[in-house]
């Protein structure tokens, strides 16, 4: 059991180091999918051709979709969270001292 735990720990740490090495540098879009969402960029002229960065000013295209283009979804998600927590508080409410 201890050997299995150690092996799993080593594999997980190796994965984390590998993914930290493979991570994109600070300032570039976080993943390859962001490039597809943003659209084509012209890196030689240091200027975005079109897409989410010009419209919202955010470097991370996923955040610009979640909070700007589809902001209503985020508002609804916040409402769902609020309702769930209000339900838990109503269930476990304690008496005031």
């Amino acid at each position: 059991m201890k050997k299995a735990t150690a092996i799993a720990f080593i594999i997980f740490s190796l994965f984390l180091f590998f993914s930290a090495y493979e991570m994109r540098s600070f300032g570039n879009p976080p993943s390859e999918m962001d490039d597809r969402i943003i659209g084509k960029y012209n890196s030689t002229a240091n200027k975005w051709e079109y897409g989410a960065v010009n419209e919202t000013g955010a470097n991370n295209a996923v955040t610009s979709v979640v909070f700007d283009y589809r902001g209503y979804d985020t508002l609804g998600e916040a409402t769902v969270l609020f309702t769930a927590i209000a339900g838990v508080m109503m269930l476990f409410r304690r008496e005031k001292k």
């Binding site: 997980f12 994965f15 993914s19 976080p30 993943s31 390859e32 999918m33 996923v62």
Partner: peptide, 15 residues
Amino acid sequence: SLLLSLYFYILQAPD
């Protein structure tokens, strides 16, 4: 859940 998060990282969805 942890393995699922690694899966998401491999599939280019770090968020």
